[in-house]
């Protein structure tokens, strides 16, 4: 039986939100369909690049929080 997949299914696949069965079916479809494979590679590489970007407070903010914590530690022994 030939399975068809939407572009949205591909997004689910990239973000591991498919069932094991869907995952296996999409893998097979990718191996048989060059166009789908190209789109997958394009979307996946962009998603991978996003993993390298950090969204976090600056080091100076982290330092301030940790310093505040230390200043309130009644258990600290010097």
């Amino acid at each position: 039986m030939i399975q068809t997949f939407t572009q949205l299914d591909l997004i689910r696949f990239i973000y591991n939100e498919t069932t094991n069965e869907q995952h296996r079916d999409i893998e097979l479809a990718l191996l048989c369909n060059n166009e789908l494979m190209e789109e997958y590679k394009s979307l996946k590489s962009t998603a991978n690049a996003l993993a390298k970007v950090s969204y976090a407070p600056s080091n100076s903010t982290i330092e301030k929080i940790l310093n505040y914590s230390k200043s309130t530690n009644l258990h600290t022994t010097h």
């Binding site: 996003l50 970007v53 950090s54 976090a56 080091n59 903010t61």
Partner: peptide
């Protein structure tokens, strides 16, 4: 902030 969200490399800055 003196470090812009710890993203030092140019590529990461651009992505952001």
């Amino acid at each position: 902030p003196y470090e812009n969200f710890q993203v030092q490399e140019d590529t990461k800055k651009k992505l952001r």
